[in-house]
Design a protein around this nucleic acid. Structure first.
Lengths: 62, 62
DNA sequence: TTGAAATGTCAGATATATATGACATCTTTA
DNA sequence: TAAAGATGTCATATATATCTGACATTTCAA
């Protein structure tokens, strides 16, 4: 359970807009948000930067 | 430039031992340490746990 | 309450993460 | 100094992340 959807909504972005910001398909964002697969580190870094946060906030569960 | 090699050495592990702990091939550890590719989030999480640290310490450059 | 936008999901294609096996080099210790 | 261990790297194979296009469903504003 990652926090991409929460941070995206807080940023007021649609899946499509976030997808454009990090240069992937909208479906990829959808799948990541719903834990349907396992994104690459590179994509995780781009997501964290686009959402003005970091890896731990998005993907780390203490 | 990630910090996997630093944390691995600090833990006193060889590439082979770390590979076993996170269930990948030794070559995969080698490639990750040398930034030859882009590991999956799942592997990053396993590496962080095996090295008793977190995603930001291993992969985030402020 | 209708229509547009946003989201969830499927199928098929492509790029790439990861595996296996092998070998060369470098480092360490007997 | 020789031998063992650790690391870097190559080639080939396989699994899977990601893409494209499409369509159904849900959400939301007019």
């Amino acid at each position: 359970m990652n926090r991409v959807k929460d941070y995206r909504k807080q940023a007021g972005l649609t899946q499509f807009e976030l997808a454009q910001k990090v240069a992937v398909a909208r479906q990829t964002i959808n799948l990541v948000e719903n834990d349907k697969y396992n994104p690459s580190l590179d994509l995780c870094l781009r997501l964290a930067k686009a959402l003005h946060t970091d890896l731990n906030h998005l993907f780390w569960e203490a």
